[in-house]
Simulated assay, not measured.
Amino acid sequence: MKSAEVSILVTLTIAIDFVMGELKGAFVMPHGGIALDPSKFHTTNKTALEEAWKIHTACAQIGRIVTELQPDLILLSTPHGISDMNNFLLYLNPKMEGYANTDNTGPPPYVSVSVNSDVNVSRDLVQHFGSKRNVSGLSAYGPPEESTEPFPLRWGEVIPLHFMPNLNQTKVVILSQPSRRYNDDMPTMIPELLKLGSDIGKYFKSEKKTAVVIISADLAHTHSKDGPYGYSNAAQPFDDACGKWVENLDEQSLTKEAASYVIKAKSCGYTGLVMLQGLLSASSDGITSWQSQLYANYHPSYYGMMVASFLRK
């Protein structure tokens, strides 16, 4: 092929990518307050404190990566937002803001974020999926897309977004997981979550905007008998299976192995991880078009916290 033809082909490829948009990357980030500022983590365990700092450093690194990617928008999945019993919700206020504690158990100091919502994308997703995917929209204190009051956010959204340096330049779309995730039949949601993730991935292929996805997720909440959910021997195997999924891009590690432990492990973020698997698999070359990296997978407190990235090869 002649150099002029190569030049035209490269230019055309870049133009197509710009017109069609793309999903530039996906990330798993914890929402435990420990990640915000480990200096305020109330522990005398040296190993736990070291792990907390590793998690914090990894979250800051994800923030820098997202800044370098310069996406038009961030789609964030939260398991601790305002939720419907059955439907996945997309928030429809033009502005969203909220706060979180640095340890999730004590008094201030707080951290806060204020973000602009891409209500056009949120509305499109609601209309695109609707009842066929159990997706609906929710507005607060006013008409959808018009309310002058901000939609309220808390730790599930605020903590991951806190690590994004240029939020004033990037719009945000928030997807809230339904509260039926708390039920013991959570594994039965797996096919639905894979399909929804796949459909979201295909949606962004057809859009003229670039995006990154952030899955707000903590892992097993049963690592300690002193924690609010007690101890379970399923906790560590669950966290290990999630880590193996990231490192090997092996769906079975997540949808079979981790699924077998999730009820006893009590992970708030599991549904978001499964949805992400479906989204990544929707790429033109499937899951193999992604390069994954596991930055941290620890439980400095009673719950597991994982930081991971999935970037295009």
Rank of each mutant, 00 (worst) to 15 (best):
M29K: 11
I159V: 05
D218C: 00
P191W: 06
D185A: 04
Q291C: 15
L125Q: 12
K24H: 08
L89N: 03
A308I: 04
M305K: 07
K132I: 11
G32V: 00
N168I: 08
N168Q: 06
A220I: 02
L254S: 07
Y99F: 05
C59S: 10
E145T: 14
D240A: 14
E97F: 12
V172M: 07
N120A: 01
S112C: 09
K209S: 11
I65C: 03
M96S: 03
P107R: 14
A48S: 15
N116D: 13
T78E: 05
G230S: 14
K54L: 11
P178H: 05
Y141V: 03
F163M: 13
Q61N: 08
N104H: 05
I62W: 06
L75Q: 06
E257L: 10
D184H: 00
I55R: 05
N168H: 10
P108V: 03
K205I: 10
T102W: 08
A4F: 13
I215L: 05
T210Q: 10
K264R: 07
N297Q: 03
V173A: 05
V173W: 00
Q293F: 10
L90N: 09
V19P: 12
G21Y: 15
I16T: 15
V135D: 04
T222Q: 10
V66Y: 11
C268E: 10
P107F: 15
M275C: 11
L125K: 07
I215S: 08
G286E: 04
G142P: 04
M306G: 03
P165D: 09
P71D: 10
I74A: 06
L69E: 09
D218L: 01
A140E: 11
I74Y: 05
K244H: 10
S131I: 14
S139D: 06
N233A: 05
L276P: 02
H80Y: 00
E97P: 08
E50N: 07
S260T: 10
V121I: 15
L279F: 13
H223Y: 09
G33E: 01
H56Y: 13
Q70F: 07
I159S: 02
A211E: 04
Y302H: 14
L69F: 04
T148I: 15
I16W: 07
C242N: 02
T148D: 14
Y298I: 09
S198G: 11
D239E: 02
T47Y: 09
Q291A: 15
A265H: 03
G286H: 00
T170S: 07
G33R: 02
R133Q: 09
W290A: 12
N120W: 13
C268Y: 01
K24C: 11
E51W: 15
I200Q: 01
N297E: 02
V121T: 15
D124A: 14
S216G: 02
G98T: 06
A217H: 04
I263H: 00
P108M: 10
Y270K: 03
K202P: 05
N248L: 15
G130Q: 11
D250S: 08
Y303R: 01
L161D: 01
N166P: 07
T255W: 01
A258W: 00
S284I: 06
R133H: 12
T78N: 06
S3E: 13
F163I: 12
S292W: 08
S309I: 01
F204E: 04
I174D: 02
L254W: 00
N168S: 10
Q70D: 14
L280V: 06
C59L: 07
L89T: 05
E5K: 01
L161E: 01
I55E: 12
G25C: 08
S292Q: 03
F129S: 01
L219A: 09
E68C: 08
